[in-house]
């Protein structure tokens, strides 16, 4: 029976490793429905994935090592009580050298892991390290509320280009709900706010997450590497409808983006009098 238990404790790590091994093929890995498949849809996201894999390799090696060590001592300890084996257990209070080794080696590995992460974090969150494209200002203000995302874009100027986004709402501003548009292949910045409780702006395919904190305006930047529709959802418990703060982030070319803003302007300025009876229904869902 004791060997059964030794085996029992060795089977589960093998199973765990196997499940992790087949996970990507089974779809139990990074989200794969987006335009870029399982690959992160932003350059920073790819770097985050690289860091994830680096930690995964280090921890897997440690996991395998410790489980093998555990298995070894278990089988050996089980054999020590076999019939006819009367020898006492090894009387040892430890080993100073081993303690030093297994303190210093993990310390170095852990410190390396920590320091190696700094760069990506700085790029993501420290404003001085943001990409230069974001210095032109935010493209939209995203306001979370129970249970939707309200997005305020600056209106289009006379030259057909978007005006700068003002901190306070302007008469020319354009509004959408649950529909964030951004230019593909370009780092764009949004200002994240919340109207009520705390929410979190989560773009899983781009590996972007930032809480929207009441009373704070938080700049968030991201860069979609391929055009298409991406998932946007809330990652911080915000009430009973937390699960249904479903929205999309559309990454599109500059032309399409401007076209979208023009359409939005048109539908928002729509005064109820159709120019031609056939068309003129609002194109985008406008709020307020």
């Amino acid at each position: 029976m004791k060997r059964f238990w030794c085996l029992f404790f060795m089977i589960w790590p093998v199973l765990a490793l196997y499940v992790c091994w087949i996970a990507p093929q089974m779809g139990w890995w990074f989200p794969f429905n987006g335009p870029t498949g399982m690959k992160a849809a932003s350059p920073l996201g790819e770097r985050i994935d690289d860091l994830f894999y680096m930690i995964l390799y280090i921890t897997t090696a440690t996991f395998v090592g410790t489980q093998i060590a555990l298995g070894y001592v278990l089988f050996k300890g089980a054999a020590a009580t076999d019939e006819g084996n009367t020898e006492k257990a090894w009387y040892s209070h430890g080993s100073h050298n081993l303690e030093v080794i297994w303190t210093i080696v993990p310390a170095c590995v852990l410190l390396f892991i920590a320091l190696y992460q700094m760069d990506v974090w700085a790029q993501y969150r420290v404003k001085d390290s943001f990409p230069s494209e974001t210095k032109q200002g935010a493209i939209a203000e995203v306001t979370a509320r129970q249970f939707e995302w309200r997005i305020r874009y600056p209106g289009l100027g006379p030259d057909g280009k978007p005006l700068p986004l003002m901190p306070e709402p302007q008469p020319t501003d354009l509004y959408t709900v649950n529909d964030l548009h951004a230019v593909v292949g370009k780092a764009v910045m949004i200002i994240l706010e919340t109207q009520d409780v705390q929410h979190s702006f989560f773009l899983p395919e781009l590996r972007v997450k930032q809480d929207a904190v009441p009373g704070l305006d938080i700049p968030v930047w991201f860069k979609a590497s391929k055009s298409g529709d991406y998932t946007l959802l809330c990652a911080e418990l915000c009430g009973w409808g937390h699960y249904k703060m479903k929205a999309r982030m559309v990454a599109e070319t500059e032309d399409k983006y401007l076209e979208f803003l023009q359409k939005l302007t048109k539908s928002q300025n729509y005064d109820g009098v159709p120019e031609t009876p056939a068309e003129g229904a609002p194109v985008a869902s406008a709020a307020e």
């Binding site: 555990l70 020590a80 009580t81 257990a89």
Partner: peptide, 8 residues
């Protein structure tokens, strides 16, 4: 556990 007489 290493080198012990384990009681399962």
């Amino acid at each position: 556990m290493w080198g012990g007489r384990l009681v399962f």
